[in-house]
Design a protein around this nucleic acid. Structure first.
Lengths: 211, 211
DNA sequence: ATTTTACTAGACGATCGGTCTATTATGTTC
DNA sequence: GAACATAATAGACCGATCGTCTAGTAAAAT
């Protein structure tokens, strides 16, 4: 009995083969990204996530087994989106490596301003909630920072090769310093509803790099 | 009729004149400081704050008119506690001004380690929640950062006078950069449950200061 | 028509901040 | 000591909201 014959013996509506390409499912994740970026995990109720896109509450647990699983997908979605954004700047050969960092900051700053300082960094938001988040989120968030840090580190090494950064510089530690400060700057920008903390952070960070 | 006579016409137990010196009230604020430092405002339920010190719920609204008012007092209590801690380090004439900053960082690091990376900075926690916090908290938190920034700024100016910092340095912006980065470092230390981000932040910050 | 899956409607218990009434404890004046 | 008034405690209760779940309808195949 071949697979076609097997298929023909099955009666009733066949299960959907690809569970990941539903409009509704994708819309839920997109809505989740937006709300978690604004308010973090706990303050983002499932009702609000659903209401934002007009999906009834009963549907949620058809697409996701729990808020915890949903959050995991939201985080991964954001991380991959953000990694692409980083690449477009940090791998831009039209700019020197130092300028690329400034290019990323300008892009992120524009996004934050566009949303009137209501949206921050999803990973930064959840970082601060981590003690009351589901188990496993901690490692997830840590790995994302490691990934981002590595991308900046590569960029800084390229700056070293182009004599824009001292060869004595520890690029890994400088990259960690960047993200630590950046998350702090985003948080402060949201508090003061001003881009000034972002700009000052970039200026001070670049000025402090060993040349 | 003089005031004494008026007093004598009132019968019964007179109202307490000083509402701020009750043990229970102080204990509630202390409990609030601890919980808000660990979990922020929203995740700190009144029940948990009460349970921590064995005070019944009925007492809460005797001492405070609302969670919002309570939170305001908790914030102010933390801010004054923290300001004192800053002074003990930043005004310590036995160290040079740059060393004083390191002295503060060491102290704070020890505190975070002592609580196993479960407690962060109360102001930093609430900073990130500010969009969903009661009105007025935003200004309250902003003012606290301005105060802290000013204390670091004064310290940096003293460093300039002692030729430890370039006279070209903008001490106000460097002070803002410090707190922005510090809050980011505390958040990261809690995520990774390690003091390394705190140490790296201090090292990079000091290394980046214009000499 | 029947079978199977995709999707939805709304109930459910737990918990939240907040309010309420009742009660006990304490201190002052007559 | 009796009468009085406030301090403080006790915990039931409310409406709202949380994440989750069960029972059902709609749709697509045989």
């Amino acid at each position: 009995m071949n697979s076609l014959a097997q298929k023909n013996t099955r009666r009733g509506r066949p299960p959907k083969v690809n569970h990941d390409n539903h409009d509704t499912r994708a819309a839920l994740i997109r809505s989740g990204v937006e709300l978690l970026t604004e308010h973090g995990f706990f303050a983002s109720g499932i009702d609000k996530i659903l209401k934002k896109i007009g999906v009834p509450k009963g549907s949620f647990y058809h697409y996701f087994s729990s808020k915890e699983d949903f959050g995991r997908e939201v985080i991964e979605n954001y991380a991959s989106y953000f990694a692409k954004k980083l690449d477009t700047h940090l791998l831009n050969v039209e700019l020197d490596p130092i300028q690329r960092i400034g290019s990323f900051v300008e892009d992120a700053k524009a996004g934050i301003q566009k949303h009137h300082y209501k949206r921050g960094c999803l990973v930064g938001n959840l970082e601060q909630e981590v003690d009351v988040l589901p188990d496993g989120y901690r490692q997830l968030l840590t790995d994302i920072f490691i990934d981002w840090q590595h991308r900046i580190e590569v960029c800084l090494r390229e700056a070293q090769q182009q004599q824009l950064l001292s060869t004595n510089a520890n690029c890994a530690l400088l990259a960690e310093f960047f993200w630590v400060g950046w998350e702090g700057a985003v948080s402060r920008a949201r508090l003061t509803q001003s881009a000034q903390p972002l700009e000052n952070f970039l200026n001070q960070y670049l000025a402090g790099l060993p040349r």
